[in-house]
Write a protein that binds this DNA or RNA. Structure first.
Lengths: 362, 362
DNA sequence: TCTTCCTTCTTGATCGATCAAGAAGAATAA
DNA sequence: TTATTCTTCTTGATCGATCAAGAAGGAAGA
């Protein structure tokens, strides 16, 4: 981008000081410390600035001198357009935005470069700290963040070592979701998982793949489901478990369509996100499968879409907006490390019911 | 936020240069211009950096020296949490994010301060240019942007003077939407407008208020509706026209509920956004008013919600994502001023039909 | 052999502000 | 009167990098 340097170099604080007949520091104080000079002089300096078309102290120079950027960097695991379309990420952004707006901090959304293993943006962004969301353990970007040495707060990252982390008890929440279904009598499940590794492209989850899981959130939720399975003597690996890459609603829909058309379809579906659950719901609707009579579905997140879906989705409510708020506050206060765990709640709505067979018996 | 200056001042390029036994420029080149020094020397410098825990050239110093920030500033008329919940704004952000990611630019979302008339963020943000969205003509922030002197590109702002503007022909698009309804035979309308001024809180729109409209988009859409009205000899001000502040779906729902319960309800509703139209749809559903048999509804934007609504919403499709892309490209290229007008299209779906009375006659 | 060119690296100046320390003058206290 | 404090303003150093210009040494060309 060509700067606006048509002919002459831009006007500086020194120019303004000279024009107003004062020193640089006094001119600077006119902008930043009104109490350090008389009101009339300040007025004169500001009107001289107006006349000279001086836009105020150069932000870059100020930042260099003061060491403060006035912005927080956001690092996402996924691409930016994805972030702006995922309801959970957006709820988070609302929380972050709320606090940043209040504290007059800018939000710098850093470009993720998937080609280069370490995004240069983490090194070159003028920010006072970073918020990272859903970055898998061991990702190169974490090393970059560590090298950069600025305060970092993570969201939804268990075992985060670079700073505080805001999480929920994913294992317990998932357990509760699954337990709700086993309590209703379900024994035939389909599980739709979020991404398990940074590079995977989706597909069946086997016993062996559990150890390779990079995303702690996915792992804990899966283990939560498993614990509920085992309590009613279900072997998790007898159930259908499919990883859906990129939290794709369309992919979930396709997978569930396949299940529902198979000889012995599941009676209940666990989605690790509302998006995945809503994909399942679509598949059911298309095939004329009644939810919840023929198929129970439980989501995760409790996004707006869960409420307005027909039938409304039974799901795990997690305080996503509050996650964003808290993480931002922690970053601004640069508090000590530690895991901050927020409460979740299972919201039973209209998408779950006992399986048909059992209903008939009862 | 306390910087990470535990005890000693942070390590600089000069320190690295000394440690590696080279000059500052050579050390700098190791990071920025690999072709300017031999490969072995570069390797040695980088590994020395690693050993010293040097995080790479300080972004603020680099920015000051080079004059480039590597970030684009976004200025919204509304608060940040609102931006992250409005479907149209999000579509725009996807377009912006796509290009920024590709060009390795960060997106700096600037805090809007509604208390202070001129947001200091515009003066203090380290950015290379600004994208402004839906800021009303005459807003103080525009003066600040002008003073700052950086390239600016506007989106959805007609008569923008500080740089290029990406718009659609709102008048023609609105005309087409309304014409669709008058063609179907409707003569009793309810019109839900977006904000007309920066300070208004909603309410009936009268002949007198037309002149005071600050948001060019709202004005043009309104005039487009009016033109269609006048073609079938309807006096616009005989129709119900209500401004809904903040594009609030809930407020729209309330207003439409009132209309539908009035002695002579409208047979058709024009919403200046899909959100407003969907609010109308909700009101109709709650009251058992059949859409489209008893009430036709037309929206504007063609967001995702329009497609999945039941019935799917007839609306004006505008290329919002493309608006974001184009505006960002224009800003990065710092092209000459000029208005860039994108195409729109009326998408007729299931929410519109002839009015009942006419159906009976026909 | 002498000149020219290229590669590789260095020096001093500079980007535009803020900070630390202190000076000048007026006001207050002893 | 002298000492002390307060207000108001100034000077020189500094934040940490990049740039422009040029030097040293070797390779290539005349």
């Amino acid at each position: 981008m060509a700067a606006a340097n048509g002919r002459s170099r831009s006007i500086t604080l020194a120019d303004l000081a000279k024009a107003a007949g004062v020193s640089r520091t006094t001119a600077s104080n006119a902008f930043n410390r009104p109490d350090q000079l008389s009101a009339e002089l300040r007025e004169r300096i500001l009107s001289t600035a107006q006349a000279l078309n001086y836009p105020g102290p150069n932000p870059m120079a100020r930042m260099l001198r003061t060491g403060r950027a006035g912005a927080l960097g956001l690092v996402f695991a996924d691409s930016i357009p994805y972030a702006f379309s995922d309801p959970a990420t957006l709820a988070l952004l609302r929380g972050i935005g709320e606090i940043c707006e209040r504290e007059h901090e800018a939000i710098a959304i850093l470009p993720v470069d998937h080609d280069i293993s370490v995004p240069p943006a983490v090194y070159t962004a003028a920010v006072d700290g970073f918020l990272v969301y859903c970055v898998p353990n061991g990702a190169p970007v974490l090393k970059a963040l560590k090298e950069r040495g600025l305060p970092v707060v993570a969201i939804d990252q268990h075992d985060f070592t670079l700073g505080p982390s805001v999480v929920i008890d994913d294992e317990a929440a998932a357990y509760e979701a699954c337990r709700h279904l086993t309590d209703l009598g379900h024994r035939d499940f389909g599980v739709l998982t979020l991404d398990l590794t940074d590079t995977s492209r989706g597909g069946p989850v086997t016993h062996d793949s559990i150890g390779d899981i990079e995303f702690a959130v996915s792992k804990r939720r899966l283990l939560g489901y498993f614990r509920a399975f085992e309590q009613v003597s279900i072997n998790p690996f007898d159930q259908r478990i499919i990883e859906i890459a990129f939290n794709s609603q369309r992919a979930a829909e396709g997978v569930v369509r396949g299940w529902l058309q198979s000889p012995r379809p599941p009676t209940a579906i666990l989605g690790m996100s509302d998006r995945l659950a809503l994909g399942a719901m679509r598949a059911a609707r298309e095939l004329g499968v009644d939810v919840p009579k023929d198929l129970s579905i439980v989501g995760f997140d409790d996004t707006d879409q869960a409420v307005i879906a027909t039938p409304p989705l039974t799901t795990v409510r997690q305080p996503i907006v509050e996650k964003g708020r808290l993480a931002t506050k922690l970053l601004l206060e640069a508090r000590r490390s530690g895991v901050h765990c927020l409460k979740t709640e299972l919201v039973v709505r209209g998408s779950t019911a006992p399986p048909r067979a059992r209903q008939a018996r009862g």
